[in-house]
Design a protein around this nucleic acid. Structure first.
Length: 572
RNA sequence: GGGCCUGUAGCUCAAUUGGUCAGAGCAGAGCGCUCAUAACGCUUUGGUUGGGGGUUCGAGUCCCUCCGGGCCUACCA
């Protein structure tokens, strides 16, 4: 049995995410996971909330809550939304878990033992009023270059000049507004990625068929300027994984934590360990997915992420795994995505611009969103969400082509043949032709899914739906029925068989509608059509069935305008 | 400033490593059908593939340049 490990980039903990975050990683990974399961792979599909770092602390402070409590609650919110969109994670973990603490500290210890960690004494800005060190972008002041008065410590938004916090005139804390700042020395750990450069370069070169978006970003970081730079992996914060060297103290690093980008990807492994713990399984259960010395050598590992996450997954995380000197499973294929835009501009959390996940589920069932997002997933370039396009796509594809097909077939069957699938007549040349066409199309569909070409797969799936309507038109059972009820019975039996067939093929994209279809046909569940002819003979006649309610309701122009109004320009 | 991606019919997108590849879906037009969510089927109108130049027997597909969109990164030659 083929074994496939799938991870989706981890959503950050602060706040509700918009649809761009969903389409850029979690949703396509879910389609792939469902497809793999349907075709018989053993699948481990992992995601988690990324909970550490300053933004989480500040969001918690703003909410007037202890950060651990805030994260616990937001994790539940995000888990509920993931469930609402039917994301079929085997486990949705948290980077704040005990497992992640242990593993992160373990990796740091191994890397230190391998000589891949160096200590660096740095000067950073400390805010006395806030009682904490401030990251560069949390310091504001007047730009020495253009005199803009709200320049951030890392860059002036007005003149785009790169800045050092100490360059700012009248610097102040963004958090408290206090100008009581001072520069203090602090020691941090750096991961010596530069020492891994050659190894990473060879590893990237050996990857075949990775998207250009993925490799070009990795190569840029590896070769640009002076090459791959070492990166700080610790911070002066309270909230995070305490710096320890394995299970030992790390002298001089008291009261510091690992930086999020170091512990977050380790969270993939930790979340799998969480899964094992929840299931009451031992260490072996998760290690056979992650350790090539413990059963993972035959695992294919596929990662999904937005393009902003590529450097961490092509360089930093592999550095961590390779540098440990232990046989950890490295990624085999990285599927990266561009961005989704909203009516010509960026989705904006701060402006409340766009469609947010909780809003979306309040407006329409998840299948509507899944179908539109997946047929427009930004694989080759950024793609744009418009309400008009959403309405047109959903109405045409889901309500008209698929939903109406199920309606016309089941209603016709009920009115002319009663409560059971008719057993009269036999399939003939027309059916053979359709079987041949569908055999080709299913093969194409599967090829695209295996290559994780989501849009192409969706197009092929739609063509498979269309074939049903074409078949009905050419067989015209409503006309034939008047003279030859047996032949009409065979036609309608064939058409009825298309419903569980469609349900099975469509399940990765629209799981709820598929469930409705398969249930209505009372045929015992999904069976992947390895042999189309056999699949279309499952219902031999005599089976009961239900006429389902409309699978999809159309979105009227008024509905569309109302939804658009709800999602436009409110302050978040 | 540098690097990368991108610009194909009104809209959303396809076009095996240059050679019937100028296509599909939607929208528009016409016809047909009546089982069905005024749904479905068939036919059909749209493009000198952002502009210009070049290489080639032949270029959306390679090179140069200009214009537009996006992402990453930065003063380094």
């Amino acid at each position: 049995m083929q074994r496939t490990l799938i991870t989706s980039a981890l959503p950050y903990i602060n706040g509700i995410k918009h649809m761009g975050n969903l389409v850029g990683s979690q949703l396509p990974s879910d389609v792939y996971a469902r497809f793999c399961r349907a075709t018989g792979h053993e699948v481990m599909f992992i995601c988690a909330t990324d909970e550490h770092g300053t933004p989480a602390e500040l969001a918690a402070a703003k909410a007037g809550r202890p950060v651990a409590e805030y994260c616990a609650e937001m994790h539940k919110v995000q888990a509920r939304l993931a469930s609402g969109f039917r994301l079929s994670f085997d486990h949705f973990g948290r980077t704040s878990s005990d497992e992640n603490h242990t593993l992160t500290q373990h990796f740091a210890g191994r890397l230190a033992d391998a000589g891949l960690i160096r200590e660096v004494l740095e000067e950073q800005v400390y805010s006395n009023a806030d009682g904490r060190f401030l990251p560069d972008r949390y310091i504001e002041g007047t730009c020495p270059n253009c005199s803009y008065d709200s320049a951030r410590g890392d860059q002036c938004e007005n003149c785009t000049k790169q800045l050092d916090p100490t360059d700012l005139i009248n610097p102040r804390s963004v958090i408290s507004g206090s100008g009581d700042l001072e520069v203090r020395e602090t020691k941090h750990l750096f991961l010596r990625q530069s020492a891994m450069r050659r190894q990473l370069d060879e590893w990237i070169d050996n990857q075949i068929g990775w998207p250009v978006l993925t490799t070009s970003i990795a190569k840029k970081w590896l070769h640009d300027g002076e090459g791959l730079q070492d990166r700080g992996i610790t911070r002066d914060l309270d909230w995070g994984v305490p710096v320890r060297r394995g299970d030992a103290d790390w002298p001089g690093m008291e009261n510091k934590v690992f930086y999020v980008w170091f512990d977050a990807p380790i969270g993939y492994i930790a979340a799998t360990a969480e899964w094992a713990a929840v299931k009451g399984l031992g260490e072996d259960a998760w290690q056979r997915w992650w350790r090539t010395d413990k059963g993972a050598e035959d695992v294919r590992y596929v990662q999904f992420m937005g393009k902003d996450n590529v450097p961490f997954h092509t360089l930093s995380f592999p550095s961590t795994l390779m540098g440990s000197g232990e046989p950890w499973k490295l990624v085999d294929f990285i599927k990266s995505f561009n961005y989704l835009t909203y009516d010509g501009g960026q989705f904006s959390t701060s402006m409340g611009r766009g469609v947010f996940q909780d809003q979306a589920l309040g407006l329409l069932p998840s299948d509507y969103w899944r179908w539109w997002l997946l047929t427009h997933v930004p694989e080759t370039s950024d793609s744009e969400f418009t309400w008009e396009n959403f309405q047109a796509t959903v109405n045409k594809d889901l309500a008209d082509v698929l939903g109406n097909f199920v309606s016309r077939v089941t209603k016709f069957c009920r009115s002319r043949f009663g409560k059971e699938v008719p057993s009269g007549g036999t399939y003939g040349a027309t059916e053979e032709t359709v079987i041949a066409e569908l055999t080709t199309r299913v093969a194409t569909y599967q090829k695209h899914m295996e290559a994780i070409e989501i849009r192409k797969a969706a197009n092929e799936l739609r063509a498979i739906w269309v074939a049903g309507n074409e078949y009905l038109h050419s067989a015209a059972p409503w006309a034939v029925f008047k003279k030859d009820a047996a032949t009409a019975a065979a036609t309608i039996r064939f058409a009825m068989n298309l419903i569980p067939f469609y349900a099975t093929l469509s399940e990765p994209f629209i799981p709820d509608a598929s469930k409705t279809m398969i249930t209505a046909m009372k045929c015992g569940g999904y069976v992947w059509p390895k042999d189309v002819a056999a699949a279309l003979g499952r219902l031999a006649g005599g089976e009961g069935f239900e006429v389902p309610e409309h699978l999809f309701t159309k979105i009227s122009d008024d509905d569309r305008e109302a939804m658009k109004a709800k999602c436009t320009g409110q302050e978040a």
